[in-house]
Design a protein around this nucleic acid. Sequence first.
DNA 1: GTAAGCACTATACAAAAGGTAAGTAATGAG
DNA 2: CTCATTACTTACCTTTTGTATAGTGCTTAC
Lengths: 125, 125
Amino acid sequence: MSKRGDNNKCDNKDLLAVRDALEVLNGKWKLQILIAVLNGTKRFKEIAKEVDGISDRMLSKELKELEMNELVKRKVIDAFPPIVEYSATPHTKSLHPVVDALKTWGYLHRKKIIGGVKTETGNAG
Amino acid sequence: MSKRGDNNKCDNKDLLAVRDALEVLNGKWKLQILIAVLNGTKRFKEIAKEVDGISDRMLSKELKELEMNELVKRKVIDAFPPIVEYSATPHTKSLHPVVDALKTWGYLHRKKIIGGVKTETGNAG
DNA sequence: GTAAGCACTATACAAAAGGTAAGTAATGAG
DNA sequence: CTCATTACTTACCTTTTGTATAGTGCTTAC
């Protein structure tokens, strides 16, 4: 009866919530873009630099989806070579626990698996 | 030293950690499978039922990758129609904060965006 | 006029992820 | 023998993602 006190279990509704989150945050780039923007308002090229490896095409696409979900705010400044600034919204900021948990787990995982991996070629099965 | 107190910012190393986590957890299904297993040891078909929509092909594939990363433990019981049990490991359990953050944010997002969306076809006034 | 820079957009094509359907091995029910 | 069951594997197809290249509109620098 005490579902509230037990956050280590997921019922069906919880599963749905995770699916919703995953749908918005899925893919290789979205979280990384969000982190860049969470660290401060940035222009297109600046995000591209921070999210190393992403192409203009992908960044443009992801930014649009993120905007639709109110996870970035786009501001066009009417200047000579165009200036477009992307910034975090309150909704983006609500992602901090997710980013933080992922970050913490990333370090943990690196220690446990990546750092202590048996050589790919040397395991006798 | 001061980094400890400020978990709202990500430096380059933190970014890398998030990328590591994303690499292991990426895709539509991994977290959902992990949640199913975190809720208790289960057989192949049981996971398939809980992670609604996944195909045998995908489940098999994902389970393998998860096993390689020590996120599920596979136990074969030598019985007549095969019995294979998948269970959580200590490493899986370390994912609880991630799952929990994602779950919480999923609810939040549903309220904010999915629940309060303007109708796609009928927003003319 | 030519070149460079910004924030995109468009096109073509390759690669990866995901979906669907069918097949495999072993065994008990009919 | 056929059907059903379990845990997968295989083949084929579509969608998404990634790479490379070129172009738009505007302005400064040469």
